[in-house]
Amino acid sequence: MEGITLQHYLFLAALLFSLGVFGVLVRRNALVVFMCVELMLNASNLTFLAFARDSGMDVGHLPALFVIAVAAAEAAIGLAVIIAVFRSRGTVNVDDIRTMRL
């Protein structure tokens, strides 16, 4: 593609990843944190695919496929955990879920 080089895609992926990190570290709602994790995973997917396209070997699509599958599994479990936590604590505010302290 004329003008759109690998660098553009990588830049986009970096931007998406950073936005995802920002969301994970700043938002207080656990569900939103989860969504930002999905955002990060997508950014990594984009990186994979950009490199695959650039090198011409489509074997790079397979890790992306697996990332999608694993993200699905992780979302399932994570949301189940959030439900359990909500049942016991009545909130999904990460500031109020301080169980992991010594």
Partner: peptide, 14 residues
């Protein structure tokens, strides 16, 4: 540093 807040731990990791 031991806040119990998972987000804080995530920050440290980041």
């Amino acid at each position: 540093t031991q806040t119990g807040n998972a987000q804080n731990y995530a920050t440290v990791m980041a």
